[in-house]
């Protein structure tokens, strides 16, 4: 067991995946010598060579489009999208090709690729560098969508995503890259990628969140505990498919659910969780499901991003509202 950061754990996970399988190749903008703008691929080109760690031309459509071809040729491409807001040039390939190839070919071919996306705001960046676009991809059948929140998941899930035979959109919470946590590289102590995990047990209100919001919600739970309210915090981890069994089991005990994400609320992951939970847990619910989300506006300039982003207070406010029923 060692203390490490999400960034370092991802780097170590990528390294291990590359060591385990010579078909694993990395491609993206500035991922070579620079090690990526977030240094997630630091040192990998030096150790695995320019053929396995490719600095790509500046073209996201090209990055994902060629990854499709490489996957068809038997490789396992792991592509890096430099920032969330720059995945859109590749949107066509992801939605029309990556997601559908297996079903179009009736299972004769598969595209085992990972599309890594540093996601979310809170870093004081200029526009297009702080977006949360997971709902677009979760809405697209054929893609698996994963959002990590801690170093242990970073390390194990990146390897699991690479080994998976389905394409995975892999969200990394950029403002948490340098947050520390425990990681045991010798023993996989985390659940499978497709499962949610209860990261704090509690009895009064269930809080379902993912990615960068997990830390926020754990802090909220701590604050709530000091006021005598017990929150159960669930890290969804997999956004498509959703592990609703874990959420429903919790809600059946607490009777209340708050969902939290940075992305705008309208048609977001929280909306899907809410819809499914009210169907499954109708008789257990003591309050309507409450969503805490970014507002339904373009991501704002950084000087007011704190007003946009859900924070501890907004989570606690939602918890209070839930408890008034």
């Amino acid at each position: 067991m060692a203390t490490t950061t999400i960034a370092k754990a991802l780097n170590a996970g990528l390294r291990r995946a590359m060591e385990a399988d010579a078909k694993v190749i990395l491609c993206g903008e500035d991922i070579g010598k620079l090690g990526g703008v977030f240094r997630i691929t630091e040192g990998l080109q030096k150790d695995f060579g320019e053929e396995r760690v490719m600095d790509s031309p500046l073209a996201e459509s090209g990055i994902v489009g060629t990854a499709i071809g490489m996957a068809l040729r038997g490789y396992r491409p792991v592509v890096e999208i430099q920032f969330d807001g720059f995945v859109y040039p590749a949107f066509d390939h992801i939605v029309s090709q990556v997601a559908k190839m297996r079903s179009r070919a009736l299972g004769h071919v598969q595209l085992p690729m990972v599309i890594r996306i540093p996601v979310g705001g809170g870093i004081g960046a200029v526009e297009h560098h702080s977006e949360s676009n997971e709902a677009y991809f979760a809405h697209t059948a054929g893609l698996r969508v994963v959002a990590i929140s801690n170093p242990a998941d970073a390390y194990w899930l990146i390897q699991e995503a690479i080994a998976a035979d389905d394409p995975v959109v892999f969200y990394e919470p950029k403002r948490r890259y340098w947050d520390k946590g425990e990681l045991d590289e010798t023993h996989r102590g985390v659940p499978p990628m497709s499962q949610a995990s209860v990261v704090r047990t509690g009895s009064d209100v269930t809080v379902a969140c993912y990615g960068p919001m997990v830390k926020t919600c754990l802090q909220a739970a701590q604050a709530a505990a000091e006021e005598g309210t017990s929150l159960e915090v669930i890290d969804l981890r997999s956004l498509s498919p959703l592990d609703l069994d874990t959420v429903a089991a919790s809600v059946e005990r607490t009777g209340r659910l708050v969902t939290v994400h940075e992305a705008s609320g309208f048609l977001g992951i929280g909306a899907e969780v809410a819809a499914q939970v009210q169907q499954r847990c109708f008789y257990s619910l003591e309050a309507p499901v409450i969503r805490v989300t970014g507002y339904d506006v373009p991501y704002p300039p950084s000087r007011i991003e704190e007003d946009f982003l859900p924070d501890l207070d907004r989570v606690l406010d939602a918890v209070d509202r839930s408890l008034t029923y």
């Binding site: 507002y295 506006v297 373009p298 704002p300 300039p301 000087r303 007011i304 007003d307 946009f308």
Partner: peptide, 11 residues
């Protein structure tokens, strides 16, 4: 700094 309400304007 702009007011937080700026984000709702001009959408």
């Amino acid at each position: 700094d702009p007011p937080g309400t700026l984000m709702f304007d001009h959408v």
